[in-house]
């Protein structure tokens, strides 16, 4: 009884959620988003590594190619009713496209609504890793930069040149 009485004067631990939101660190593993490059183009190059890394196999996508050769996912589906928010997909992603963000408010009455398509996942910003553009570091010419114009690249070889 005494103990109970003492607790009346303690600082309250209960947070009045949802009126008061708790602080979540930026690295919190919540809702999954797909980010864009600074030029607003999709970062995802549809390499399938997130799908391969996913331990519950809840990601499926299909690669497609734009006119300039740039790869993008034709569809990108995450079944959040299976997702365990382990963050392996983010770890696997070579382009920082897929990111887990501090948001856990995803409850639904109907399980079917937990299936997110690309339009539900794609955001317009760069998320946690601003400034990175995969294509500037890759050797391929897929519309972002020409051959030999990327970071740490030499000009294309002149095949007719036989100089030692």
């Amino acid at each position: 009884m005494w103990l109970t009485f003492l607790h009346v004067f303690h600082k309250t631990e209960t947070v009045e959620y949802p009126e008061v939101k708790p602080y979540l660190a930026p690295r919190y593993r919540g809702r999954i988003v797909l980010t864009r490059d600074a030029d607003k183009k999709e970062r995802c190059v549809a390499c399938y590594l997130c799908a391969a890394a996913c331990p519950v196999d809840c990601i499926s996508l299909q690669a497609a190619e734009g006119e300039d050769g740039r790869r993008y996912p034709e569809f990108f589906r995450i079944n959040f009713s299976r997702c365990i928010f382990c963050g392996f997909c983010e770890e696997a992603c070579p382009t920082y496209a897929i990111q887990l963000v501090p948001d856990f408010e995803m409850a639904e009455y109907d399980r079917q609504n937990m299936v997110y398509e690309k339009e539900h996942l794609l955001i317009s910003g760069e998320g946690k890793y601003p400034g990175y553009n995969f294509y500037k570091n890759a050797g391929v010419d897929m519309g972002v930069k020409g051959k030999g114009e990327g970071e740490n690249e030499e000009k294309p070889v002149d095949v007719n040149d036989l100089l030692p």
Binding site: S60, R77, S81, R111, Q112
Partner: peptide, 16 residues
């Protein structure tokens, strides 16, 4: 063994 997307491929049609 590394086949991916088992639980998502048909999830747009029926989630179960």
């Amino acid at each position: 063994m590394r086949y991916s997307g088992r639980t998502a491929i048909n999830a747009n049609i029926a989630v179960s």
